[in-house]
Write a protein that binds this DNA or RNA. Sequence first.
DNA 1: AAATAGCCTTAAGGTAGGTTAAGAGAGCAT
DNA 2: ATGCTCTCTTAACCTACCTTAAGGCTATTT
Lengths: 195, 195
Amino acid sequence: MSDSTNILIAYFNRHIPLNYEEEEAVKALFKERKIRRRHYLLQEGDICINNCFVVEGCFRMFMVDKNGKEHNLQFSTENWWISDLYSLFKREPSRLYIEALENSTVLYTTIDELLQLFEDYPTFSHIFRILTQNALVSQQQRILQYVSSTAEERYLDFAKKRPELFNRISNVQIASYLGVTPEFLSIIRKKIAKS
Amino acid sequence: MSDSTNILIAYFNRHIPLNYEEEEAVKALFKERKIRRRHYLLQEGDICINNCFVVEGCFRMFMVDKNGKEHNLQFSTENWWISDLYSLFKREPSRLYIEALENSTVLYTTIDELLQLFEDYPTFSHIFRILTQNALVSQQQRILQYVSSTAEERYLDFAKKRPELFNRISNVQIASYLGVTPEFLSIIRKKIAKS
DNA sequence: AAATAGCCTTAAGGTAGGTTAAGAGAGCAT
DNA sequence: ATGCTCTCTTAACCTACCTTAAGGCTATTT
């Protein structure tokens, strides 16, 4: 069994302690995959069939709008999940891209294996209901912030909430996540530095 | 047993057929409440302890930003759920308001009763995992749209996706949902009418 | 019937943030 | 070393949307 799988098991145990059988099920089901920097885990038009857990590295999920501009929706680093839930659950082509920002390692299962796991071991159904709830809540917080604050406030908040990410990725990526151009982010940074 | 409860049971049956015991559990657990137009189901600072199903009527969920402006986040009409999931699950004071736009009827349970229901009847845990998934997916779609389209596009999309709501609520409410002022929505409407 | 309140529109002037373009510095490859 | 690519910055001009203010219309209340 790989180190990677132990990391995932430790992750699950932090939510709900797994018994021996459940740990074995994780070891049997999840497969490891390495993705090199600038390579894609998912591209627009693909049907997302894998649910991925980031063991090591960093990904960004983004969409391309009708003018060809990219908009980052989410970053995932160690101990985060990354997949297009819309495509995964609806089994329809994705409108999103998932790109590795660093050389990375993930553990993944197909959606069908995951649903089977939920049936065989209710513990996992329970864990994923909580994970989905948490994701929903944090998305709602993001919408709240989006409608009610300026780019400068979002920038400061991002620096505060995700300091490790903040120092790990480029300002171009941060700007895209905050919904501004890199040029305007530069102006914001100058203004903050002055004050 | 009330008509309201039958509507909720029919709703559940459309997701996963309930057996006799599960139907009885719904009848035992959910309570009815009527809310008059302009009255609040939830106000900022309250801890949201009830999960509500709209039997009849229409609600809006909104936040008030630091400048005192309201931002609509969601409308709920018949056969939708309405609650602040953040406050509900984290048991922390809400930053949101839920207001009845019409005289309305809801069925509700407390979060503790709901969690107990999940333990007693896995069917409901299953249904709510799917509902949470769907909510997550549709929120993600909304974020996608928010970052990638103009106010005019969002307006036309809203008219197309929710035609009944579109004709049921005021433009002031729609503008707040779309993230523009009523004045600017008026300009958009004029422009669309001309073309 | 009058008064009040909410809704919708128009218009003038203002601001946050975008676009385009250009240059300077860092890191990587030949 | 030389070039290449990427990142970050600065600046001039532009646009989508906001603010304020005012007027007319309709619905509700008294």
